[in-house]
Design a protein around this nucleic acid. Structure first.
Length: 709
DNA sequence: GACCTGCTGCGGCTTG
């Protein structure tokens, strides 16, 4: 394949002293050099996917033309900054210029590129959106001759609102282009190839190149029972001993927990004169601090360190190789687990090392289920929203602004041709349009649709460019030094202490007008309170949890305590005699209550809970155990199930009712609250609930009841 | 008890 590449690119490879091309690189070179197919490159982390795309693209494209030739799109600014150096290094061999374009990139460089459009551009979807609505002429100048679009970490877009927006943006870019550009998507974790192919807009001309080679991995499971709000001391000591001499990433599932771990490990380390390289890394920590930590991890070769983090360090940002990855309690998805495993053992011949800690039996079970499915190569498919009305509404506003007004016919034509919305009917488009006019977001003047009075506020706000919601936050400052930004909670009062950026602070002043919190260092404090909602769990994970309970096979990676806990847990459920994993579900009778374990995914559980509420049977719903507890016995539960099935017949009426009586239910969608009632309900149905799954569950469920003695 | 992601243009200021 080497021979297919252009001479400057071959020189680059020789200078790098690569002995051979990786399988994904060889395959991509062949396809890109000899065809014009769109591609999805799926291969594990650190397998050279970026080069797999760029070596042949740079060999093939003629950069003499006055247009950006290659557009690289990333979900993260940090990833752009990281890839910039690598791509620039490669492009230097061809005398091709590379430009960063995102909210924190240099304005001057952006202006220069507009004056002289050329080379490779690295950008975020939101920056593309901003350019399209604010300066469509720039987009036209820059991209009229675009040849390739490379989408990095494409799995983070697939099945997400941001992915629908990106599809729409690609469609809008294609409209400006004189010919068709080729799309190449990169990812290590694709669970749904059909959806991945649809990202390119032309699934029939999209080929998936897949390298299934997995990294060797060592996994260990440990168990420490959580008795209070804080992590048990024994766990912390064990974690310290297992990480003190290594470079590690620790993934608990929340920002608060990440702080708790960083501060406690540092405390233990101080006591025994260990190293002091303990950090926390998550969305509430100041950007510069985060960059410092990333830089430290990347450049430091000699010293051990530990970064306690959330999914901020899950995607491809190169922080060098770590020796070990620690997962505290279960991940929400296999996809996330794969990304995290990929952070360690990045060099050839290295083994990925993963250490799981569980703090209760349900988390142990969930971790084992994820691990089991991971070994089988399962990655959860995404929840596909066929009619994304909320994103469509946003894109309709974007179109009107981009076109500086247009007729209804023209707008419908654009939407109809936009592959992000190919399942949307004209009458639904019209319903949204009517609503936009009614709310003064749009205005109709002389047959032209223009941005309305209310619309001006919306589209001229910098919050317009993104399709996801963020909560308002307070800046935390130590004198003038920013530490981070955290959402307001009653905990934030003068004289309270809190943990942030792996340090303990005392609050000396809360300024509600300026939304600023002044802090000084302190000795002891509580972890900050965050009001997030966890990610949805896929039904397959819960089903595997039930399966693991009914089996008796020993799992070699468990420590003694985990073995005992699992054995006990299994014997508890053995009494239920589950025969069909699909239909049989345990129900526990205890002191006049009955607890139904659905072992189903989050969306179905939310739907079941909603249905039980509707029939007036308030249940105690616990997502972690996937269970519902009612007053009564088996007969009552059976009648609740029958009633729930009954009420599903009128679900549309009940959805309308909930939207009218409790508008806050639409908070899951940033733009959904502008939709007409009918479409709000349909969006709730598709995105928030899963009544189809709930109906299927209720129809098939067969109760296996056991009485608690 | 619960993840994450991004951000224009312009007026007004300082500085070289």
């Amino acid at each position: 394949m080497f021979e297919l590449l252009s001479e400057p690119v071959r020189k680059y490879i020789r200078d790098k002293r690569w002995e051979s091309l990786r399988p994904i690189q060889a395959a991509a070179i062949e396809k890109i050099m000899t065809t014009s197919l769109n591609l999805i490159l799926a291969s594990r982390t650190a397998s050279g996917k970026t080069e797999a795309a760029f070596l042949p693209i740079l060999s093939k494209v003629d950069f003499a033309q006055p247009s950006v030739q290659v557009l690289y799109i990333s979900p993260l600014i940090a990833l752009i900054n990281d890839q910039f150096t690598r791509i620039e290094d490669l492009c230097a061999y061809l005398d091709v210029s590379v430009t960063k374009w995102h909210g924190e990139a240099s304005q001057a460089r952006k202006k220069n590129l507009v004056k002289n459009p050329n080379g490779v551009l690295l950008i975020t979807p939101e920056s593309l959106e901003a350019m399209l609505v604010n300066a469509p002429y720039n987009a036209k100048t820059l991209f009229s001759g675009l040849k390739y679009v490379v989408i990095d970490e494409i799995h983070s877009f697939i099945g997400a609102d941001r992915g629908i927006q990106l599809k729409s943006i690609l469609s809008r870019l294609q409209y400006l282009n004189t010919h068709t550009f080729v799309v190449v998507g990169l990812s290590a974790t694709i669970g749904d190839y059909t959806e991945a192919k649809k990202m390119t807009g032309d699934p029939d001309h999209t080929k998936v190149l897949l390298d299934r080679t997995a990294k060797e991995m060592e996994a260990n499971f440990k168990y420490f029972k959580m008795e209070a709000a804080d992590l048990p001391l024994a766990l912390m000591k064990d974690l310290y001993l297992n990480t003190m001499a290594n470079k590690v990433l620790i993934f608990p599932n929340s920002r608060g927990r990440a702080e708790e771990i960083a501060v406690k490990l540092k405390k233990i380390s101080d006591k025994v004169n260990g190293h002091s390289n303990y950090f926390s890394h998550h969305s509430s920590i100041d950007k510069e601090l985060r960059e410092y930590i990333e830089h430290f991890a990347k450049t430091n070769v000699r010293f051990p360190f530990a970064i306690s983090c959330t999914s901020t360090l899950e995607l491809g940002i190169d922080i060098g190789s770590v020796d070990k990855v620690v997962q505290v309690d279960a991940t929400y998805s296999i996809s996330s687990l794969i990304q995290r495993i990929g952070r360690s053992g990045r060099r050839d011949g290295e083994v990925s090392k993963l250490l799981f800690y569980a703090t209760d039996k349900w988390n142990l079970l969930q971790s084992l289920a994820c691990f089991d499915l991971y070994k089988e190569g399962f990655i959860e498919p995404v929840n596909v929203i066929r009619q994304p009305f909320d994103i469509l509404l946003h894109q309709m506003l974007a179109y009107v602004k981009q076109l500086s007004g247009c007729t209804r016919a023209m707008l419908w034509e654009r939407v109809r041709e936009n592959y992000a919305f190919d399942q949307v009917a004209e009458q639904d488009f019209d319903a949204i349009l009517t609503q936009l006019l009614e709310k003064d977001l749009l205005e109709l003047i002389g047959g032209e649709l223009i941005i309305g009075v209310e619309g001006e506020w919306v589209v001229n706000n910098k919050d317009f460019y993104s399709v996801f919601k963020t909560e308002p936050a307070y800046k935390v400052l130590n004198y003038d030094k920013p530490i981070g930004e955290i959402p307001f909670s009653p905990q934030l009062n003068e004289d309270e202490n809190l943990l942030l950026a792996a340090r303990i602070w005392k609050i000396i002043e809360v300024d509600h007008t300026a939304k600023k919190i002044s802090v000084i260092p302190a000795k002891d404090g509580k972890k900050p309170i965050f009001s997030g909602s966890g990610a949805d769990l896929h039904p397959k994970i819960r089903e595997r949890m039930l399966q693991l309970l009914t089996e008796s096979e020993e799992i070699p990676e468990l420590d003694e305590t985990s073995i005992d806990i699992l054995r006990e847990f299994r014997s508890e459920f053995r009494n239920y005699r589950i025969e069909s994993l699909e239909d049989d579900r345990p129900a526990l009778l205890k002191e006049g209550t009955i607890q139904l374990y659905s072992f189903h995914g989050t969306r179905v559980n939310k739907s079941l809970h909603f249905l039980f509420d509707l029939i007036g049977q308030e249940s105690n719903y616990l997502e972690q155990t996937s269970s519902f507890t009612f007053t009564g016995g088996k007969a009552e539960l059976l009648s609740f199930i029958a009633e729930a099935i009954q009420i599903l017949e009128d679900i549309d009426f009940h959805l309308e009712n909930i939207v009218l009586t409790k508008p806050s239910i639409m908070e899951f969608s940033k733009w959904g609250h502008f939709l007409p009632l009918q479409l709000k309900c349909r969006l709730l149905n598709d995105k928030y609930f899963d009544f189809y799954g709930a109906r299927d569950f209720l129809d098939r469920v067969s109760l296996v009841v056991i009485e608690f003695e």
